[in-house]
Design a protein around this nucleic acid. Structure first.
Length: 470
RNA sequence: CGGGGAAUGGCGCAGCUUGGUAGCGCGCCUGCUUUGGGAGCAGGAGGCCGGGAGUUCGAAUCUCCCUUCCCCGACCA
């Protein structure tokens, strides 16, 4: 009798598959409070890898890390009208603390523009203080109506960058720099996710921003996921929080601010972009464990050789884990590592040992090949590079084959049942956008035909990428 | 907030119609045999059946109230 599949097949029920993987790969559990999640060690190690890489890139772009408080005076949120309107339904508010009703309720931050704006106002006096480039790694809370683990949780982890500039131009360039040099590059080169970078429509724009830019990724089922955003906030927050500086001519000026962030949602995106019916497939550059060395049998010589092998790989700076839990069957362990998406598995048994080889199993593609024990570092290095490239190629092919050019709203809706549609923004317009929304289809972003960012909300020739989204 | 479901060992479920204080699969523990793709057999541990009130000799099961969760929709950076 055939064994039932380890996971619900993607083609049967994609959301169910996603839930299954999250549980069986030991990524996360639901928390006790609705919408919260417990990130398990394996899931957290993936987040830590993301964090480390993104943090390095942010610092390279000149921003410095700081930390602002979790609690924000409710009055701060109210200072920027559009901002408070955008958030009020999803705010968690503390009204009682220390056994007493608070004079002024405090809000658990949904994002930190307001509190950071308040302090920027204190720190910025002169044009010489600009640009002020800050970033923080923090948790934020948004009481979402429909949570989904990693994709939309009531509390999530992220990095939020906040900057103040002397001119609109400088702010815009910095927001774009973060979008391209930090987010897009990281997603493509590390996550192996070929995101489309574009400009949000007015409807989809962040509350309080003058321009919202986004990285949109296509998931395995053809739906879109916003993986990161970068906002130009204009002078909205500078005016609300009085961030002013004296320019070189001695005149008071309001600063121009930006904000930008990526979150634990990326973990969900990674799962849904690369996962298959056997589980996760983690791109090697990101993978907390790149190689697992697996002892096939309980045999002293085998286990000893496995240890030596793992050590040799670790010495070559390959992230390796040793699995000599021979009390568990070989098949079970192989399945479990596959679920976790470890890119390369080295299986070593008595047979391999006598032949001086080890069986190298590729998670991407599934190929199994005997490779010489002597040149193992080179073989593994090559296998990792191949897997990284293959994942990006696969995701790129899917994105491209599931994106079609259309001319009408009806065609766009149709195309959105299996992927993305590209339609001239001039054809669609605000009414078309509203029309699509009725069937659950949204404009993910606007892009120019050459892939660059539209310079305005109504840039000539801009194309709308429309699809269903998570 | 509207519509639909559900709450029973860690997880997934059956039992309820026709009341007699729980059962299955997976997981877990012990032992033996196994181990090259989710091991097998044997023996175990583990549940005041979401909460409260009521009917009854007796309630997982019937009645009423409450709470929570899930799905669809509205909402969402």
């Amino acid at each position: 009798m055939a064994k039932p599949p380890v996971l619900t097949p993607q083609s049967d029920d994609f959301p169910r598959w996603y839930q299954d993987v999250v549980a069986k790969a030991e990524m996360a559990d639901n928390g006790p409070v609705r919408g919260t999640m417990v990130i398990r060690p394996y899931g957290y190690s993936i987040w830590e890898q993301m964090q480390a890489d993104v943090d390095r890139r942010i610092k390279k772009a000149g921003a410095k890390n700081a930390y602002f408080p979790l609690f924000i005076p409710e009055s701060y949120l109210k200072r920027e009208a559009e901002h408070v309107e955008g958030f009020s339904p999803e705010l968690a508010v503390v009204t009682v603390a220390g056994g007493k009703t608070l004079e002024e309720p405090v809000v658990v931050r949904p994002t930190s523009e307001t509190v950071i704006g308040e302090f920027m106002a204190k720190w910025v006096q002169s044009y010489r203080d600009l640009p002020l480039l800050l970033n923080q790694w923090a948790n934020v809370v948004r009481w979402e109506l429909r949570p989904r683990i990693f994709l939309r949780t009531s509390e999530f982890l992220w990095q939020e960058g906040h900057t103040a500039h002397a001119s609109q131009e400088d702010g815009r360039l910095y927001a774009e720099r973060i979008l391209h040099d930090v987010y897009e590059t990281f997603m493509r080169n590390v996550l192996a996710i070929p995101v489309v970078v574009g400009r949000k429509t007015v409807k989809e724009r962040f509350a309080g921003a003058t321009n919202t830019m986004t990285c949109e990724a296509m998931m395995g089922d053809g739906k879109a996921l916003q993986m990161g955003t970068s906002h130009e906030l204009g002078q909205n927050f500078a005016k609300a929080f009085d961030i002013q500086y004296l320019d070189s001519d001695g005149a008071q000026q309001h600063a121009w601010t930006t904000s930008w962030g990526v979150s634990t949602r990326m973990v969900g995106g990674l799962i849904m972009c690369h996962g298959d019916d056997a589980g996760l497939r983690i791109p090697p550059v990101l993978a907390p464990v790149q190689v697992v060395v697996l002892a096939v049998r309980d045999d002293d010589a085998v286990i000893e050789r496995c240890r030596a092998l793992a050590e040799e790989l670790a010495d070559a700076d390959i992230r390796v884990e040793l699995d000599v839990r021979t009390e568990t069957s070989m098949g079970r362990r192989a399945t479990d590592w596959e679920l976790k998406g470890i890119p390369v598995r080295l299986e070593l048994g008595p047979r391999d040992l006598t032949e001086g080889v080890v069986t190298l199993v590729h998670r991407v593609g599934g190929l199994k090949e005997p490779v010489a024990l002597s040149g193992i570092v080179a073989s593994v290095t090559e296998a990792l590079a191949t897997a990284q490239a293959a994942l990006l190629a696969e995701a790129t092919t899917r994105r491209d084959t599931h994106t079609v050019d259309v001319a009408t709203i009806t065609e766009a809706t149709e195309a959105a049942s299996t992927g993305w549609a590209r339609i001239p923004w001039a054809t669609l317009g605000l009414e078309g956008e509203a029309e699509l929304a009725k069937s659950g289809v949204t404009v993910r972003c606007l892009v120019m035909p050459d892939g660059s960012l539209p310079a305005s909300d109504s840039a000539d020739g801009a194309l709308a990428i429309v699809s269903r989204a998570y």
